[in-house]
Amino acid sequence: MSIEVQGVRRAFGDVLAVDSISLTAEPGEVTALIGPNGSGKTTLLLMLATLLVPDQGQIRIDGLDPVSQPTEVRARIGWMPDGFGTWDALTVREVLHTIAAAYRIPPDRARARTDELLATVHLEDLGDRRARVLSRGQKQRLGLARALINDPSVLLLDEPASGLDPRSRIELRDVLRSLAAQGKTVLVSSHILTELQEVADRAIIVARGRSLETQSLDSDFVATGVASWRIDSLDPQPLASWLEEHHVPANRVGGGLTEVEVAGEENAARLLADLVRVGIRVIAFTPSQGALESAYLAATEDRR
């Protein structure tokens, strides 16, 4: 039930949307696709969702080719587009019933599945409202329910967290984790990095239509990856000179704060201990960027 993408390329006229992307997403894991706007994430997901033919390269979903075996692939995938509309006149429940019918799910099972999914995405009390009146975040949650209706083994979610309030984001995270725990392959595109770090097992960084690197986001990475830490101190001057003496890359940010780049949590703890030992009065020492964010920024630095 894995996704394998090998050197995929897709152009629209003279716009090269996806230049060369390769990735693998394994079952039981949440794989994140991160990259700046216009880097080709949506286009890649359209190709995975059997809507677009790649100009070059190969895609295998569960060993099946979306170009030559679209029906078989469609039975296995759930796709949630980034921006999407709904049929204005239908109620939330009817939207899900219609999609279920499109998957040839018998009506009684469709009703049961709809109720189950409305509970999952917390839309139970909006079930009989027109889909048109839903807020953006609620529509987004309806989109997730829609992608899950055929109990797919491969999930393709395009920016599922955009428009969600903090509580819904946490709930989305839990839903994605539990789907992965059921052995499904989950591929999420996003640019909200802090969230992805908590939910994803692996991140694929893309920029300008190319996959730059695959970053495993296990505890090892968090413990050893380069991250930024913010230090607030009552003695900014001595702090600056101490950091310079010890060749710690640092820069002043607003509000008397200093930001330092440290590789791994171990080193961060040691730095704090050193600062306290030499008598610099530290009143705050917090990570400002996740390790994923730093990796992302490093990988996409050449954009400017």
């Binding site: 059997t50 999407f84 055929n150």
Partner: peptide, 8 residues
């Protein structure tokens, strides 16, 4: 597109 990715 949401209909085209179903079994229709």
């Amino acid at each position: 597109a949401t209909l085209q990715t179903t079994l229709l």
